[in-house]
Design a protein around this nucleic acid. Structure first.
Lengths: 151, 151
DNA sequence: GTATATGCAAACTGTTTGCAGGTGA
DNA sequence: TCACCTGCAAACAGTTTGCATATAC
């Protein structure tokens, strides 16, 4: 999906909800889609702080939290719970569904997706009478380079 | 596994670590193994508060948190992250490894275990050079009775 | 013009910690 | 005895919220 397309769909989303396209929302939106990495609200705030922009473009902590929530509601970001206590986000462009391998030692996050597991999950949910809305699979372990270092 | 056996192993655990068997730890241990349900620290505190015990048996919030952590370290409890912001615990007796189906509507938690998924997880981790230590699979959806109610 | 957003700081939730006094081995 | 524990209250981290002011439409 092209950046312009999703930007447009963000503007539509705001319009439909009767919300306004403010400088802050615009800046947060652009920033969130400018990286392919996962980020937390605080990391994000750091990124914004690095840029030296004139006062009317500045974004407060409260607005970052509010807007990340908004983008998540709208389906532009996805919440990723890595179990660290902080909410991690990732944007949704060119990011088909995937799960995560997390290195307990260096916190590196590797994405993967396995259709066989996806299918089994559906099967299991069905057999328990659940209608699946989403799922979250985290594999925790030690990555190759950390194992090497440990020796 | 019999209750007595695990109680013994808890006492051994304390001894090995040079820790003491206090009234508080004993009470928390018994309570944690008296239910088969998941619980949070605050729920647990509530349970303890319901019982009218003499002062030396009373347990403070700090001690509940400390002791649940201790029991988790010792492998007597398992941490279950249901994504609600609070830590949920479940004890380990007669509870082989399993994953969870969570109803987004009524919060009901159903346990399941599927060896085919377990095997695939190992395979995926290996193929990415990870050595798996544990994993966490949560399937979120709407359970049968909530779907029925919704209609 | 006016409803919606923002920034600020204060509130909140779940959890951890420092310290003075209590207690199990 | 004395290291380990506990209770208390204060600290903490991440996040949310109330309110006065600013701004998009």
């Amino acid at each position: 999906m092209k950046h312009e397309t999703i930007r447009r769909s963000f503007e539509d989303f705001l319009k439909t909800k009767g919300l306004r396209l403010t400088r802050q929302r615009s800046r947060i939106f652009e920033k969130a889609f400018a990286t392919h990495d996962h980020f937390t609200a605080e990391t994000f705030l750091g990124w914004l702080g690095e840029e030296d922009v004139p006062k009317p473009e500045r974004v407060s902590r409260a607005t970052v939290y509010r807007t990340l929530g908004l983008l998540t509601d709208g389906g532009f970001l996805e919440l990723l719970d890595v179990g660290s206590g902080e909410a991690h986000y990732e944007h949704v462009i060119g990011h088909k569904h995937h799960d995560h391998l997390i290195c307990s030692s260096c916190s590196r996050i590797v994405e993967f997706m396995d259709q066989r597991i996806e299918d089994l999950q559906e099967e299991i949910a069905r057999s328990h009478g659940f209608e699946l809305t989403h799922h979250d699979l985290r594999l925790m372990g030690i990555c190759k380079s950390c194992r090497r270092k440990a020796k």
